[in-house]
């Protein structure tokens, strides 16, 4: 062994090696974790009203599937996508719009005209016209859009989670 290399020098070398590699690892992995985990800065324009369709032809308590386009900020692009809402006129004035996914695992459900209920084809959850779970594994009632009516036009806003 070299004459300069007493036990003190050796342990100094070893501790510097560990310390420096710890700093380098931290300086690389911390920004990386932030980069991967922090959501993008601008999730703006999320709460704007979208025109979904005309409700003047709606019959009371008969759900109708409205198909409309909306712009969605998806990462680095704004996609204009087709989306749907199940719209029901409850009584004379109240209009409810459900989002088109089952609250269980997100399958698209459909309206079963015979039984007057919404039926999910995946795990056979069923929902009433008020959105409440009738049968099946769905954990909560159907999610709904906030609604606003301008003349005969239905405007949809943010999504509210259904009651558990």
């Amino acid at each position: 062994m070299d004459k300069h290399q007493g036990p003190d020098r050796r342990s100094f070398h070893v501790s510097v090696i560990y310390a420096m590699w710890a700093v380098i690892t931290g300086a690389l992995t911390l920004p990386a974790a932030i980069y991967l985990l922090v959501p993008p800065k601008s999730k703006k324009n999320t709460s704007e009203w979208i025109e979904a369709g005309d409700i003047s032809q709606l019959k009371a308590n008969v759900p109708e599937e409205f198909v409309f386009r909306r712009n969605r900020l998806d990462g680095w692009k704004v996609t204009s996508e087709k989306t749907t809402a199940w719209v029901i006129k409850q009584g004379d004035s109240d209009v409810v719009a459900f989002t088109p996914q089952c609250t269980h695992l997100g399958c698209a459900y459909s309206y079963d005209d015979k039984n007057k209920e919404f039926l999910c084809p995946c795990h056979t959850s069923t929902f009433g016209l008020d959105g409440k779970v009738l049968t099946g594994p769905a954990p909560r009632a159907l999610d709904r859009y906030e609604t606003k009516i301008a003349g005969s036009k239905l405007m949809l806003g943010d999504v509210r989670k259904g009651d558990a």
Partner: peptide, 19 residues
């Protein structure tokens, strides 16, 4: 898309400019 995604990395993602 490459251009837009690089811009997204540099402007929208925290730590993106750093990476």
């Amino acid at each position: 898309e490459a251009y837009n995604s690089v811009k997204y990395i540099a402007t929208e993602l925290t730590g993106g400019r750093m990476m």
